[in-house]
Write a protein that binds this DNA or RNA. Structure first.
Lengths: 111, 111
DNA sequence: AAAAACAGGTTTGTAACGCAAACTTGTTCT
DNA sequence: AGAACAAGTTTGCGTTACAAACCTGTTTTT
């Protein structure tokens, strides 16, 4: 498939800025708390919560709710496929950037 | 600003896959026809049209409608700020990718 | 010469999305 | 007891991306 068609078909679940940040952060932690992720990304709680729900529904993350002492704690980590997906996403972006640099139109539809 | 906050704040106008493709293609042409862009990206006409309208409203592209003989022709090219913006966007993505690779959490919020 | 098909786009309709404000549930402080 | 706080979730709403339907003029078919 051509570079630009491929570009239009980038996975929006991962490409969306907030989720890209979440997934990229998680790729560098064994796991992270909700609160830690919130301060890291600066997202509002509501916003973070709904992004995490989406990622969870897509099987990208594991979400474990428990209690640390008496305080509820939500711990998030990447699933295996989530880790593969975010790594592949960044790799594809990088490849596209490089391909784009050398791409030239072939036809005379261009001026 | 921290890496991940910056990531959540990526410009969505440019980051959206279809527009990323359009802008990246245009960055490598002097200009391109509507039809050429359509075949390049595989977008539907309606979809391409509305993305171009958004880019135009944001001052990212110039859109010139004319006639080539009797056939109407819509020609699209990057504005100066559009060119700067798409180049900067790719550059930031690349920087983020590199920064992300070496980033490690500092706190013990992580396991 | 009408009608049908086509070229080149634009407008409309709609389901999904991203976001923050409001709400919930339980805890600690006074 | 009650006020304030912590940790999330749900709700509500304006915006978006997308394709189907539409429009305007041209060319081809009959």
């Amino acid at each position: 498939m051509s570079l630009f068609k491929e570009m239009t078909e980038l996975d929006k679940l991962l490409h969306e800025p907030a989720r890209l940040a979440i997934m990229t952060a998680l790729a560098n932690c064994e796991s992270a708390d909700f609160t830690f992720l919130q301060s890291l990304t600066g997202l509002s709680k509501g916003n973070l919560s709904s992004h995490l729900t989406k990622l969870d529904e897509a099987g990208m993350v594991f979400i474990i709710k428990s209690f640390v002492g008496k305080i509820p704690n939500t711990n998030i980590s990447l699933s295996g496929s989530g880790e593969d997906a975010i790594n592949a996403h960044w790799k594809r972006l990088d490849e596209m950037r490089k391909e784009a640099k050398i791409w030239k139109p072939e036809t005379e539809s261009t001026v």
